[in-house]
Every structure is written in structure tokens, then in C-alpha cells.
Design a protein around this nucleic acid. Structure first.
Lengths: 155, 155
DNA sequence: CATGAATATTTCAGGCTTGAAGGAATTTGC
DNA sequence: GCAAATTCCTTCAAGCCTGAAATATTCATG
């Protein structure tokens, strides 16, 4: 950091703030659109879809705390979402042999089928929402976002 | 769109999905960090800060529906947040002369002072969280995000 | 001017989210 | 083997958020 940058409110500071505001705007906008479509098309929600996606990537199942870690969401939150998925029959809880505290959560066959249906559609939605992005734009965004992602980990 | 791109799951599709997932991860991560700091440092929240920021940019005040438009949040949501800000003394509701349906919401002097304090700190937090971003990165991100922002408006 | 349409806001149910507190089971250290 | 610390999960209060319904007021039109 040079002397010229050592005070707040440099041009760079302002640009970073602008990036943050745009990041928020774009992410919230896309999320709102995807949430609405999820609701109308599947009668589901993004958090439920996220849980199912995590379970789909772990065919052996995940513990509640495993879900909490993977999704970076509080434990209590996972409890509520899994409760609803169980009520819908998309997911099942099972005992963990050696540990009576833990629960293993797995997609049911119905949940697996439904997830595949949702995942394909969801991917197409994202693709359409990002239609303006060519391979170059995507690479540039991934690079920039990668920097932000790395820095956060350090906190 | 060329013939090669006319089926789902092209490399570009995958890249777009990757961008979306990273966007979500970075935004959620930063938001969680900012939320926590807002809570600890100011006993406040991002939604309340957003409302105050909108009002700070409109010294004449905003109607409830104006806030709803600017923040892109539902009407009912604004009601609750403004209720809390009123209870805290940061914001006041006033009658609109010609229209007894409407409410004009304004920052109180205390709310204005508190907002300035929060805004300065918030900007510094964002700056620090994005320390890895140089002017070039910021410009690239703004450009890429701008494309996503534009496309959404078309929905 | 009356009445039906449009507008501004609130209320509500349902769901997501957190942080904190609590209960149950396991692990650790002596 | 046992007490203390840790781990796993749930519960809870408070807040945010949406979409839909209800209320109140204003506008438009005949």
C-alpha cells in the first residue's frame, strides 16, 4: 500500500464498494428469480434444493453437522429444513451405528429422482439468466470472484 | 447460438453454473461477515442499514412503496423493518399532505448521525474484505457483473 | 356524484436464518 | 472407571422475507 492509498476513500476503495453493491444486486436479483421459479415449477425452495444437492453429492449420506458444514449454515437451520424434506418424503434420517447422537441423512429414491429433475431445470435457468456471458466473461468473473473467495477464508 | 451450443451442458453452460455457485458463495460469505460485524459493532442489521442508506440518499424522505421499489423488497417486509427503526428512534413516519394512504419515512437527526457512523465503518469493512482486489480486478468484475445485471432487467 | 378500479399500506401464514441455550451421548484425562 | 470437556443435535426467540388477503383512501368514469 503506497502513501497515496493510505487514507480511506481512495478511488480503489470506491470501486470496491461499487463491486460489492453490484455483487449484492446481481446475486439477490438472480436468487429472487430462481426462488420464484423453484416455487412455481416445483413447489420447493432454494434452501431445500441446496440440501438435496449436497446429499446428491454424498451418496453415503451426511450427518446433520456435515450438512451444516458443507452448506455453511447453522445447525438449527439444517434441522428445520431437513424436517420439511422428511415430511415431503425426499429425505430420510437413519441412525449412525457407533454414535447414538448422530443422524445420517440420505436422499430417498423419490428424492433422488426429484432432485435430478430439479437440477437439470435449475441448470438451464442459470444458463439462460447468464446468456450474456461468453466464455471470456465467465473466466474473468471466476478469476475475480476467486480472489474474494480466498480472502474471506482468512477471516 | 451455433449448432454446437444448441444442446444443454456445453462447456459454457458449465462455466456459467460455476460462476453462479461462486457468486453465491462469495456474496453469502461476505454478507455473513458484514452481518456479524453489524450486529456486534452497532447492534443493527444489514436490512436496517439498507433502509437507512436509502433514506440518506433521499433527504426529502421516501414513501413505504418508494422504499420497497428502491430496495426491491416486498411491501410487507418494509413495514416490519421500518417499525423497528421507528421503535429505535432512527426513523420517523409522517403524513403526506394530499394523500392519507401514504406515509413519508425520514431519518431522524439521531438516525442520520448513526447512519454516517455506520456507513463509514461499513465502507472500511468492505474495503478490507476486498483487499485482494486491485483496480483492474475491480473493473473486470464490474464489467462482468454489469452484464448479468442488464440481462436480469429483461425478465 | 356515485361507484368501480386503482393505489398505498398493513396484516398474516409459512418459511429461512442466526445465535444462544439445553439435552443426550461420547471422548478424554486422570 | 469416572468426572469433565467435547460433540451432536434440537429447541427457541427474534428478525427477515415473500406472496396473498384485507383495509383504507384516492382516482376515474359515466
Amino acid at each position: 500500500m503506497t502513501v497515496l492509498e493510505s487514507h480511506a476513500d481512495t478511488a480503489l476503495s470506491k470501486d470496491r464498494l461499487r463491486v460489492w453493491l453490484k455483487l449484492l444486486k446481481v446475486t439477490r436479483g438472480m436468487e429472487a428469480e430462481l426462488r420464484e421459479r423453484m416455487r412455481v415449477e416445483f413447489g420447493s425452495t432454494l434452501p431445500r434444493f441446496d440440501v438435496m444437492a449436497a446429499l446428491a453429492r454424498h451418496p453415503g449420506g451426511l450427518r446433520m453437522s456435515g450438512l451444516s458444514d458443507v452448506l455453511r449454515v447453522s445447525n438449527g437451520n439444517v434441522t428445520g429444513i431437513v424436517d420439511r424434506l422428511v415430511a415431503e418424503g425426499q429425505v430420510a434420517r437413519a441412525q449412525v451405528p457407533g454414535d447414538r447422537r448422530a443422524q445420517l441423512v440420505r436422499l430417498t429414491p423419490a428424492g433422488q429422482a426429484e432432485f435430478l429433475r430439479m437440477a437439470r431445470t435449475h441448470e438451464a435457468w442459470v444458463d439462460a439468466l447468464m446468456a450474456d456471458l461468453d466464455a471470456r466473461d465467465a473466466a474473468a468473473l471466476l478469476a475475480g470472484l476467486g480472489r474474494l473467495d480466498r480472502l474471506e477464508g482468512q477471516l
